[in-house]
Nucleic acid binder design. Structure first.
Lengths: 145, 145
DNA sequence: AATTTGACTTAGAATTATTCTAATTCATCT
DNA sequence: AGATGAATTAGAATAATTCTAAGTCAAATT
């Protein structure tokens, strides 16, 4: 059974503590699942993966843990087109690419400052604290991995 | 009971015809509702507004009409954070601003070419056919209208 | 060390936006 | 007028998520 590395565990504990919440085995395991495979899994997928490491965990707990991780700032929710919410531990500003064919979501790194720069198009009355950029399309042939 | 203007009716008929569908009173009324108040209503809201003009219409028909309008290219769906889908007859490329306080969604016009330019950040293997840009935050004081 | 406290976990029920089903209505074509 | 197929309708079904209420557990207090 895969465990969380020392550094990640530290990160988790600190962030949870900072938001007045405890590190628990369930939360550690769910966080580990997200870190191990950064393919934007849905809650269902997180549940399946977590269950294989901790067979007694329940769906409700997975939702609770994910919510806890999001509220502590360690994980971001990615919503695309009313599909089930996906979860992403990539905290650096980045865009997403959604493949219409496979339904997969990819992180797209963006040059530093690009996301912030986008707020320039906003008239002054709009005070944005977050920017979301999503591309949709398909992968060039031979890049389906 | 408000009716659709000649020009809008023409637009509707042409677009529907072009996608092999018929213009019907229900579709005209739903389209009129969207054109009259461009505040990104949800299906529920469209239903309520349409019902006041055409009391016999059903929710299923509203969903069907909205889907028809979307498929014919006259209307776009706007999805924000797993909230109910909103509908928007603004076909020009634009961004959205989502107010955390009121939940309202505003169109943000962007300079010509801006949206297309964004695809420059995409590595070559990603072929985007649409770009979505959403800001989230709050309105500066005194701009709550 | 036992007790209390409150946070956490759990199973299952409830919610809700949306889609589906099957039956009718309606317009157009012969 | 009758046939054909599209459009509309009411209500059932679906599915992701949230809620509820009961049980568990760890830390704090006695």
């Amino acid at each position: 059974m895969k465990r969380l590395g020392q550094e990640d565990k530290e990160t988790l504990t600190t962030a949870l503590d900072h938001s007045g919440q405890r590190a628990t085995p369930q939360r550690e395991t769910v966080f580990g699942v997200l870190l191990d495979q950064r393919d934007h899994p849905t809650a269902d997928e997180v549940y399946a993966r977590t269950k294989s490491r901790m067979p007694t965990i329940s769906m409700a707990t997975v939702y609770n843990c994910l919510e806890t991780l999001v509220s502590s700032g360690l994980v971001k929710q990615v919503n695309i087109e009313r599909e089930p919410t996906r979860y992403c531990p990539n905290l650096a500003p980045h865009a997403h690419f959604h493949c219409r064919e496979t339904g997969r979501v990819y992180d797209v790194p963006v040059p530093a400052g690009t996301m912030e720069k986008l707020t320039d198009v906003l008239p002054g009355k709009y005070q944005a604290d977050s920017v979301e950029l999503v591309f949709r399309g398909h992968l060039a042939k031979g890049n389906s991995k």
